[in-house]
Amino acid sequence: MSALQKRNDAVDINGFTNTVTTDNHITSAGSSWYFAVCAIMGVAALAFMGLSFKKHRSQRIFHYITAAICMVACIAYFAMGSNLGWTAIQVEFPRSDPKVSGLMRQIFYVRYIDWFVTTPLLLADLLLTCGLPGPTILYVILVNEIMVVTGLVGALVKSTYKWGFFTFGTVAFLFVAYSVVIEGRTYAKALGADIHKTYILCGVWTIALWFLYPIAWGLSEGGNVISSDGEAVFYGVLDILAKPGFGALLIWGHRNIDLARLGLHFKDPEDHANSIGNEKHRNGADSRSHGVTSGTDATTTTNTTTTTHV
């Protein structure tokens, strides 16, 4: 790690003065960890895109969504590794521990921009898998956005009122968890054992991890208990498991599931052209068949007429 720290001078190039100067922030080690997570997210995005080519184009929606999740996270972690996308907020609980000492703590708002984009996509992956109705999916995503925004506002508030926003976010999360665990499971069960198994595996994985995010928030942006480097590791591990880890489970579970079973139908230009060609071919065959039949009938009629005349 020491050699890596010597090569990583992002915290020196992009210093700790933004709107104000922070004295409670990541170190070179934290920056290096953020860059490592950035690399993991980037590799995962490329892997999911690569795996999509093994599927027909009309069957790739889950690959595309999952790759997009990791792609956005990759950019966010690049920003944090570069010591960008943050502001300094006065802490509510000053600490004597040197690792968290100081009155102004570094808050990475870019993390919440990441979550605002990626968590709805993640929920779309899950809730499309179980065949939940469109209006319900949209409603769950809206509540999820409330959860993310209240978390950001709470992180940017320096007074005890931050815990009010934390409470709003926690209640919103509990609604999302209920929708995934209870409602989604009921719909998935009706679609077949393989779909139900995939949904349960991915759903339990996601909600179990999401329960840890409020704890991470309370120890870092909220309570100023762990250092900014500790915050980086906590959130980074959770994001790796919740995005590339979740994506791997989901793509593996969908390997033999046809999207039509989920009520999802996407047309492909080649399929549409082939369908038109096949239809024209059938129509031509029908016409020729009709013409042969008419000719036979005409011959039979002529013969019958001739025989009668004789």
Rank of each mutant, 00 (worst) to 15 (best):
V225T: 15
H63V: 05
I61Q: 11
L121N: 02
H196I: 00
N18H: 13
R282C: 03
A79C: 13
F246A: 00
T302S: 14
H265F: 11
R57K: 14
T206H: 13
F266W: 04
F246Y: 03
F246M: 02
I75Q: 04
G291S: 15
H56V: 09
T150E: 02
N144P: 01
K99G: 00
H56M: 12
G81T: 03
V100F: 03
G253R: 07
A67H: 08
E145A: 02
R255G: 08
A67V: 08
V237D: 01
L127V: 00
L212A: 12
L259I: 02
K99L: 15
W217S: 05
F246P: 01
T150H: 08
N278P: 01
T27N: 06
L156H: 10
A67S: 15
I200P: 01
M104G: 00
C130D: 11
F78W: 09
W205G: 02
K162F: 06
G50E: 01
G30L: 09
I240L: 00
M1H: 11
A188W: 04
M147F: 12
D12N: 14
P120W: 08
N18D: 14
I195S: 09
Y187P: 06
G230I: 00
L249G: 08
Y139R: 13
A242G: 08
Q5D: 11
T118F: 04
G236F: 01
V180C: 03
I215C: 08
L262P: 00
V225Q: 12
